[in-house]
């Protein structure tokens, strides 16, 4: 297992370099727009645009820019944001607590709600309850975030006045973003749990367990849920990776300056260093989370082995 992990980590370094190289060259060669154009504003004359380009080092050959970038990267320097002049690493560090909080809350919410609904609907499958919940979860899952977030605000903040529209990192402020972001995933997870559990519930060993007189709830939780864990884990990996990478829409609606806001604004401002930083961060997160998921497979299901 250890060799497996080390090998994965070793390969990851090259993958990360490959990805940031691709992004680096794409931005500077084929993606229209550049930071100078953004910084020059609307009415700056051509010579100002040229000078900004020069000041930003954008007039050098792309390959030279890349070598500079690599050199700085080797010192852990990701450069400065062209818009705010802040160190990119600092921006990432600033965005982290928000992103981690939202991810954590959302993960807990998704898991609790998703597994609960999944278990209920699988246990009482094909009853009216199952069908009702199925309609509700599907509606939830097909509701776009930009709509759901606004509806939550209109209902709970404007209508009932019990929660703030944008409450920042406070407890009350995080409730609506968590629901907005987590409900869709929970519905999705519930469906997966239900499907996985139905299979298990029909399997011989669960029926055997039941036949042996094990209490119903015990059967469901111990055998069935345990065996439905692989898809749950896989999806959880996605959710965590995705959430850490930033929930652009939810963050924007609820005014949370996490990774999502950071990366989308970086792209809109063509803030090259910042884009590079967010891409680097997100790819590392994904590689790491998926490594964890793969490792946990082996623990959850002893039949899975890596060599």
């Amino acid at each position: 297992m250890l060799t497996y992990i080390l090998r994965r980590l070793f390969i990851s370094i090259f993958l990360v370099l490959a990805l940031i190289a691709v992004v680096f060259f794409m931005l500077r060669t084929v993606v229209p727009g550049d930071p100078a154009l953004v910084l020059a504003g609307e009415n700056a004359p051509p010579e100002v645009i040229e000078q900004i380009r020069h000041n930003q080092g954008l007039d050098k050959p792309v390959i030279v820019q890349f070598l500079y970038f690599l050199r700085n990267l080797s010192h852990g320097d990701l450069g400065r944001s062209s818009m705010t002049r802040e160190l990119v690493t600092q921006r990432l560090v600033e965005a982290m607590p928000i992103t981690l909080t939202l991810t954590g809350l959302c993960f807990v919410y998704t898991m609790l709600l998703g597994i609960l609904i999944g278990v209920i609907t699988a246990y009482w499958h094909d009853t009216w309850l199952d069908n009702l919940i199925r309609v509700l979860t599907v509606t939830g899952a097909s509701m776009p975030t930009f709509w759901f977030g606004l509806m939550l605000i209109l209902i709970f903040a404007v209508g009932f006045g019990i929660l703030p529209v944008q409450g920042g990192l406070s407890v009350r402020g995080m409730i609506l973003p968590t629901i907005c972001l987590g409900t869709g995933s929970a519905a999705y997870l519930a469906r997966l749990v239900r499907a996985a559990m139905l299979e298990v519930l029909n399997s011989d060993y669960v029926r055997t367990a039941r036949a042996k007189g094990v209490r119903e709830l015990g059967v469901v939780l111990k055998h069935a849920l345990r065996n439905a864990l692989i898809p749950i884990l896989t999806v959880a990996g996605f959710q965590i990776g995705g959430l850490l990478g930033g929930a652009v829409i939810t963050e924007s609606i609820f005014g949370l300056p996490g990774m999502g806001t950071l990366s989308i604004n970086a792209i809109h401002n063509r803030d090259y260093s910042l884009i590079q930083g967010t891409v680097l961060f997100i790819v590392v997160i994904y590689l790491f989370v998926n490594l964890l998921v793969d490792i946990s497979y082996a623990y959850v299901d002893p039949r899975i082995r890596y060599n």
């Binding site: 409900t183 995933s185 999705y188 996605f238 652009v248 829409i249 999502g260």
Partner: peptide, 30 residues
């Protein structure tokens, strides 16, 4: 002066996640 114009906030969407994982939470926006 108000220089900016079509502001950049057009937060159009997409987020890598929206494109990526088809999870509903990732749905794009306007």
């Amino acid at each position: 002066h108000n220089r900016s114009v079509i502001t950049i906030i057009a937060l159009i969407v997409v987020a890598s996640m929206a494109l990526g994982a088809c999870a509903p939470s990732a749905t794009p926006t306007t």
